[in-house]
């Protein structure tokens, strides 16, 4: 870890003006600072900002402050009942101790667990643009099959963001140019030839809260995470499904994947294959094929394609079972 300036922000405006690296739960930032992967000259502690509330919105949706801890959000009564997929995703992530610290805004900005990103002795385009990618011909079992490029194949590690993607969340920010609202689907960037740019935030811009739209009555949702062990591991493949059924037909479906892509991966291909079709195993199977049609395996991660398909089929079966 390197020497850095530490200060505490008392207001959101003050945090934006301070123009440094924001410290919330610290579960990513401090970890990577200890590894010298991130060496911010100035760290702004934002834990004192009044962004730690979960509130119902007049339209029936939910407003989640950026500093709401993962544990608090997961066990929130409204989230448990209405946004089940989000509660399940949060509880499948990390460990209780980490969830007690990690925040909503921080989780959206969580850094990849790629071995090569986390060690400054390796070439990594995300850490040092133009340096090369050690994962392409390295041990890439945990890397992405979707959204990768010749420059980066690191997976986005968040579970929460996958659920929020399927819930069509919106990220609200405040920056040097004022406030803005960004649909989560437009918030993340695929690596392309600039893997160091992971999202659309500009320097100094801070996430203030996330909103979830209301869900129609009868909507079902579920998060399934597959991995080697039962807890405390990132996903090999995960899927979030938010779905409505009427008379045996799927009227609306939102599908997002985790663990297989360079960003939380919304699959409109799967959604198209589901909407307007009967809730049958054949439909589910077609949707899973559609979702993975563009997948590109690396040397060690080809199995993720089949695993993600199976995860989607199972999740659709689970969510449509008694509908």
């Amino acid at each position: 870890m390197q020497v850095f300036r530490y200060s505490q922000a008392r207001t959101v405006e003050g945090a934006v003006r301070a123009n440094g690296t924001f410290l919330a739960g610290g579960t990513t930032l401090v970890d990577l600072m200890k590894l010298n992967v991130l060496q911010p000259p100035a760290v702004i502690d934002i834990n004192g900002l009044p962004l730690d509330r979960v509130e119902s919105l007049p339209n029936g949706g939910l407003r989640i402050g950026a500093l709401v801890r993962n544990s608090d959000l997961a066990w929130n009564e409204t989230v448990k009942e209405k946004y089940t997929v989000l509660s399940e995703a949060l509880l499948s992530g990390a460990s209780p101790q980490l969830r007690n610290m990690a925040t909503t805004g921080g989780n959206l900005l969580q850094k990849t667990r790629c071995y090569y990103y986390r060690d400054t002795n390796y070439a990594c385009n995300k850490r040092q643009p133009g340096a090369g990618c050690s994962a392409l011909d390295g041990f890439n079992r945990i890397h992405a099959v979707l959204g990768g490029s010749d420059h980066c194949v690191a997976t986005h590690p968040s579970d929460m963001a996958v659920a929020m993607m399927a819930l069509e969340a919106t990220v609200h920010t405040q920056g040097p140019k004022g406030e803005r609202s960004i649909p989560l689907d437009e918030f993340y960037l695929v690596p392309g030839d600039t893997p160091e740019k992971e999202n659309v935030l500009v320097p100094g811009e801070i996430i203030t809260h996330v909103t979830l739209p209301p869900l129609a009555a009868g909507t079902r949702s579920h998060y399934l995470k597959l991995r080697d062990r039962a807890q405390y591991e990132f996903a090999l493949a995960s899927v979030a499904v938010v779905i409505q059924i009427s008379g045996g037909n799927i009227t609306r479906a939102r599908v997002a994947f985790g663990g297989v892509a360079t960003k939380p991966w919304r699959s409109r291909e799967a959604e198209r294959a589901l909407e307007g079709h009967a809730a049958t195993t054949e439909t589910f199977s077609r949707a899973s094929d559609a979702a993975m049609a563009g997948a590109k395996p690396l040397q060690y991660n080809g199995f993720k394609i089949e695993l993600a398909k199976r995860a989607l089929v199972r999740t659709l079966e689970t969510t449509t079972q008694t509908a």
């Binding site: 071995y115 060690d119 002795n121 390295g138 041990f139 062990r229 039962a230 807890q231």
Partner: peptide, 23 residues
């Protein structure tokens, strides 16, 4: 071990998996 530099890649409690209580 990474054959390129002999580094144990998963040299921490998060990446080197042992059984958790849930396992």
């Amino acid at each position: 071990y990474d054959p390129r530099n002999a580094k144990p890649l998963n040299n921490n409690y998060s990446d080197y998996l042992v059984a958790t209580n849930a396992d």
